[in-house]
């Protein structure tokens, strides 16, 4: 595998049209993300932000009607969800599920090794893995007792989000899509989560943040801000766009898009 350089194309979405349960949600969406960049996607409730994130991760039940998605020179839509994950696509879920009885560490070690196998690297053993996870848990200010618990089992809303970012820092994805990771976090947790995300801000990776709050963008300063409304990107700009949205809301953009 060749090394990814800053500026290389990581994700290229062209004219994506997709349905959910027979309803058209994405209506010709374009988005280009390059290595080293952080993109924030904002937009009204129900606009299709999570739909986009889920489609990129390969969730079944979404019907792709037309368009293409290229990820590092590959047709992303032709890959199974687990193949995408192993190639470095990570989705931080808006609502992480609980999986009772499945140990956190056990899952994370299996996930890391699946990714390493794909990259032609040797699997880590339990000993090496514990060293990695201890370091990341320190970064995420998580108590070691989380390791013994089931995946998200009985976690508070904020703890679940923190756990998503912990997983992300361990898996070191090439493309991280974080769906409202900031929702439900207290101020301290927001800072910790931001530290985790910023630690992955590197030349050979890209991050897409879905958020409703400009506040997150004070901690993770994006290179681009997009507004997703009515199933497509209706406006793109730099981080000042987020500040403008906070002032003016979405109406002025949404009306523009429905007229188009």
């Amino acid at each position: 595998m060749t090394q990814i350089q800053r500026g290389d194309l990581v994700l290229d979405i062209k004219n994506l049209v997709a349905n959910v349960a027979g309803r058209n949600i994405l209506k010709g969406l374009d988005l280009t993300v390059r290595a080293g960049e952080v993109h924030a996607i904002m937009g009204p409730n129900g606009a299709g932000k999570s739909t986009l994130a889920q489609i990129l991760a390969g969730r079944p039940d979404y019907e792709i009607k037309s368009g293409t998605v290229t990820y590092l020179d590959e047709d992303l839509l032709a890959l199974a969800p687990e193949e995408r994950a192993r190639r470095g696509v990570f989705l931080g879920f808006q609502y992480p599920v609980e999986i009772p009885g499945v140990n956190n560490v056990y899952l994370l070690k299996a996930a890391l090794n699946a990714r390493r196998r794909q990259a032609g690297l040797q699997e880590v053993d339990a000993f090496e893995f514990m060293a990695i996870i201890r370091e990341k848990m320190k970064l995420m200010k998580m108590d070691e007792s989380f390791l013994k618990r089931g995946v998200n089992e009985g976690f508070s809303g904020g703890e679940k989000k923190r756990n998503e970012i912990l997983q992300m820092t361990v898996l070191e994805p090439t493309l991280a899509i974080l769906d409202e990771t900031d929702s439900g976090l207290d101020i301290d947790a927001l800072k910790v989560v931001s530290t985790g995300v910023n630690s992955l801000r590197q030349d050979d990776r890209a991050i897409i943040l879905v958020t409703h709050y400009q506040r997150l963008l004070d901690y993770i300063v994006p290179d681009y801000v997009h507004v997703l409304a009515g199933g497509r990107i209706v406006r793109s700009g730099d981080r000042t766009l987020a500040l403008e949205l906070e002032e003016r809301g979405y109406d002025w953009l949404v009306e523009g898009s429905s007229a188009a």
């Binding site: 039940d61 687990e82 879920f93 999986i99 499945v102 056990y106 299996a110 996930a111 898996l171």
Partner: peptide, 24 residues
């Protein structure tokens, strides 16, 4: 389906994902 997809998204095979959920 949510649990299954969550594990697939972390790179586990479908069989491993089902086994993990059932064993849990």
């Amino acid at each position: 389906e949510d649990q299954l997809f969550y594990l697939l998204q972390r790179g586990l095979s479908q069989e491993d994902a089902v086994n993990m959920i059932v064993n849990g």
